[in-house]
Amino acid sequence: MTEPAVDDPVWTRKHLLGLADLTRDEIEFILDTAASFQEVSTRSIKKVPALRGRVVVNLFFEESTRTRMSFSLAAQRLSADVLDFSAKSSSTAKGESLRDTARNIEAMGVDIMIIRHPSAGAALDLSQAVDCCVINAGDGQHAHPTQALLDLFTIRERKGRIEGLNVAIVGDIAHSRVARSDMRGLIKMGARVTLVGPPTLAPRTFEQFGARVVHKLDDVLPELDVINMLRIQKERITSPVFPSVREYVQLFGFDRKRLARCKPDVLIMHPGPVNRGLELAADIADGPQSTILRQVTNGLAVRMAVLFLCQQAAGKGR
């Protein structure tokens, strides 16, 4: 080991809480590191010893299948040991606070906590309460940084760049942490972001972040390079902010007719799980423009990169 790799490390953060405070260089560094990790998943032995002997805990206070599995598999591919915590079967059901729960778990010798929580700010709060690394896997409507990073990674992979692309995020913007994190990341990387939805779900207040807000999907279709369709959260369909399902599908559902008005190489994304026939027609979700499954695959490499970089930043001198 004759030479240190670089003079000025780009990544020095032990937590990943959101994209709002990251620089463009830092985001690019994560994406580049993730690209290196893709190779690991193509081997017959899909494992490297980088986090051997480290303990990663999934602290999930909200339902999740793919994000939790993706983080678990990413940690295992780095040779870490993984513990799963779910709120239902634990003492939080008995009234224990987040901080107390986290401190107790940390006392078992944990290196990285991955938290998903229904309250915005839970990840930040946790990072102030514990010494280990904290990675935000979604907090309320605030942020979901690894989803945004894997979306950026997928766009860069398919389009060769992010800068200058016209990207639309369509659906329930107001209640979506994915929309917020995607918007932050895309704008930082130089994309032009258009938020599309009915006024109740895509309010003009989002323009303050540098995005354009429109209420008619059909007006912008021909100019878009990437369309990210958000999942319509079923629990909102009965609420007053949501138009009727039929009206929503008519105005914002993406189907073959709308695809015909797009650029031929438009990229269709979705954070999953897809409500087929609601926000996205089934033949589009499975079509050649769709990159939904690639997003899932890339999510693994991106999460390996995040786990590795945060642990490296925390581990200096240990």
Binding site: V6, P9, D32, S36, G315
Partner: peptide, 10 residues
């Protein structure tokens, strides 16, 4: 790896 910290670049 545990001692070189953020200097590890992939």
């Amino acid at each position: 790896l545990t001692t070189i910290g953020p200097n590890a670049v992939l």
